[in-house]
Amino acid sequence: MGEHQGHDGLARIAGLGEEHEVVAVWAEHSAIGHHYEELRADGTVDAWTEPPVR
């Protein structure tokens, strides 16, 4: 396995195959931060949280 940068600048762990296509994106924004989730074609979910922009 190797690590590579995703389109969002986050480091992701890649398996032996290719990255699966993103089929749905969910985002929630609030005063305490931003939460994102991407559902991939293989059923996996990438999720991350970012602090608010000040």
Rank of each mutant, 00 (worst) to 15 (best):
T49L: 06
S30N: 15
P52Y: 04
A27M: 14
R40F: 05
R54L: 09
V45K: 08
I32R: 14
D46E: 15
P51E: 04
Y36I: 02
E37A: 14
E37G: 03
A41H: 08
E18N: 10
S30V: 02
L16H: 14
E21R: 15
A41V: 07
G43Y: 00
E38S: 02
H29A: 07
D42N: 15
H20M: 10
A24G: 02
G43D: 01
D46R: 09
G6E: 01
H35D: 03
P51K: 10
A31I: 08
M1Q: 13
A47I: 09
E19W: 00
L16M: 14
W48R: 07
I13P: 01
W26N: 07
H7R: 09
S30Y: 04
A11D: 08
A27N: 10
A27H: 11
E18K: 14
G17K: 12
I32F: 11
E21C: 03
L39T: 00
Y36L: 03
T49Y: 12
P52C: 07
G6Q: 01
H29Y: 08
H34G: 00
D42E: 10
A41I: 04
G15F: 13
D8A: 08
G43N: 04
L10N: 14
H4K: 10
D42H: 12
G6I: 00
A11G: 06
W48E: 03
A27E: 15
Q5C: 03
H35P: 00
V53N: 05
P51S: 08
H7N: 05
Y36S: 00
R54H: 12
A41P: 01
R54T: 12
R40E: 02
A14C: 14
R40N: 04
G43Q: 02
H29R: 12
H7Q: 07
